[in-house]
């Protein structure tokens, strides 16, 4: 196997994962989605590290990837605790709620054009009144798809 070509391939995959995580972190507004995008960035870095470790025949790449896993776990614990406290105070996972933490001189962020929740109306089943023979379309009954 051409080790150098393998290295290039893996570095590019790691870079793609990192960039995807970065874009996700910058674009999304949900606290948990932002955090998971950060974890995706760490994963991209791990891929690169393992590739470099193999290229130089040094187990240090895997060591550092192991430390990344451990530190990501610690970070996840604390991030979860913080997100939980933020949620308990604001009842929302939106990071734009905390715009009071912005820098000086910045105008507050105002949401424009949030699409409304267009959830389709749930069709609850209608119970037929008891004691009455249900009205049933005979044609439809004849050709129904599920028996």
């Amino acid at each position: 196997m051409n080790e150098a070509a393998l290295l290039v391939n893996f570095l590019i995959v790691g870079g793609l994962l990192f960039v995807t995580g970065m874009v996700g972190f910058l674009v999304r507004r949900n606290l948990i989605v932002m955090f998971l995008s950060a974890e995706m960035m760490l994963q991209g870095v791990s891929v690169s590290l393992i590739a470099w470790g193999r290229f130089h025949q040094d187990l240090g790449g895997q060591m550092l990837a192991l430390f990344i896993i451990a530190i990501a776990a610690a970070e996840a614990g604390i991030a979860l605790a913080l997100i939980l406290m933020l949620y308990l105070r604001s009842q929302t996972l939106d990071v734009a709620f905390w715009h009071d933490l912005r820098e000086e001189g910045q105008p507050p962020y105002v949401d424009q054009g949030i699409p409304e929740t267009h959830r389709e109306e749930h069709k609850w089943p209608r119970l037929t009144p008891s004691g009455v023979r249900p009205e049933v379309d005979q044609e439809e009954q004849m050709h129904r798809s599920r028996v």
Binding site: L26, V27, R29, T92, L93, A96, Q112, I114, R119
Partner: peptide, 13 residues
């Protein structure tokens, strides 16, 4: 399904 999941910050973000 929350409204802030469906939109990003501003048009240029």
């Amino acid at each position: 399904d929350a409204p802030y999941d469906r939109v990003s910050w501003a048009w240029f973000s």
